[in-house]
């Protein structure tokens, strides 16, 4: 097996708008055949990063290469080789699935007649090719948008929150398609602010206020990126327990979770000691058990959010 090649290399990539630093010295690489997620709040610099990588926006500082081309000087070479599915994908409602696809095939200069049919079949759009885009449920519109983004056989696709508004089974079906494309050699770069979506990526970068705080496999982030341990605490009265825990210095974060409290503590905190201390505060403690860290725990810990 050959070593995968980086298809995106960003080094200290920075974008300023006046005094505002939208993207702040971001460095990362994306390797061929990977699905890399970019998780962050609105305004954290996700779209600005994509726009720089697409060569639509000039970096203020730093550099990036996409498929080997310099985003500053070779943008025209990048755009025909990448696909882009934006959040508000531009589909023509009054055109059919087929007409939308042939329209985009024309835009991208795809000349092989068979290609539209091939993509329509591969993405499960063939049997609905004569339906107007307007009647399609969200999940199918997303598939169609994905289809229009891959007609010209890009080696790299950028997906901006590709599955907003669909439920878990439909999201699952969409992602199975992405995995299928990846197996055919496509690399995907996905932005999202939902943990559900981030879980589907091979590696996830966590963006906050323009900075890339971490980038690793979801499982590894959950195991290694937390500055302590997660515990679920069942105690009464709940809100008093929450206040008590918040006040402790070795409790890094305490939040309500359904019927209990979820805390992130320094590694040395021991549940037995914690229980005794809580009881000393006049709280009734039913249970303290280790929590399975989630990507949200990681995000909140790294981004310094919380209650």
């Amino acid at each position: 097996m050959s070593t995968p090649q980086p298809v995106v290399i960003a080094r200290d990539l920075t974008k300023r708008f006046g005094d505002f630093v939208a993207v702040d010295h971001v460095s990362f690489q994306v390797y061929e055949g990977e699905v890399v997620g970019y998780l962050g709040p609105n305004g954290s610099g996700k779209t600005t990063t994509i726009r720089m990588l697409l060569g639509l926006l000039l970096p203020s500082e730093g550099e990036a290469r996409v498929l080997g081309y310099d985003v500053r000087t070779q943008a025209e070479a990048i755009r025909p080789r990448v696909g882009y599915m934006s959040q508000r994908f531009a589909l023509y409602d009054e055109l059919t699935v087929w007409e939308n696809m042939t329209f985009y095939a024309g835009v991208y200069g795809v000349r092989e007649g068979k290609r539209v049919e091939e993509v329509a079949r591969a993405l499960g759009l063939w049997r609905i090719r004569n339906l107007q885009a307007r009647v399609l449920p969200t999940g199918w519109r997303q598939r169609l948008a994905l289809a229009t983004a891959v007609l010209h056989r890009p080696r790299l696709i950028f997906l901006d929150e590709p599955t907003s508004g669909v439920d878990p089974p439909t999201r699952r079906a969409f992602w199975d398609l992405i995995y299928q494309l990846v197996e055919q050699g496509i690399t995907a770069f996905v932005t999202t602010h939902y943990m559900d979506e981030a879980e589907y990526c091979h590696r996830v970068g966590i963006m906050h206020q323009g900075r890339l705080l971490a980038m690793d496999a979801p499982s590894r982030l959950k195991e290694e990126a937390l500055p302590g341990r997660v515990w679920d605490v069942w105690a009464r009265p709940l809100l008093r327990a929450l206040e008590a825990l918040e006040a402790r210095e070795d409790v890094l974060r305490a939040v309500l979770a359904r019927d209990h409290i979820r805390i992130l503590t320094r590694p040395e905190v021991h549940p037995r000691g914690l229980r005794r201390w809580m009881q000393g505060q006049g709280l009734q403690v039913a249970r303290i058990q280790p929590g399975d860290p989630t990507l949200e725990d990681v995000f909140l810990a790294l981004a310094g959010g919380g209650s």
Binding site: P41, N42, S44, H193, M195, G305
Partner: peptide, 9 residues
């Protein structure tokens, strides 16, 4: 459409 921190809050 809100970010994870706001959603948590």
């Amino acid at each position: 459409g809100v970010d994870p921190i706001t959603r948590q809050e």
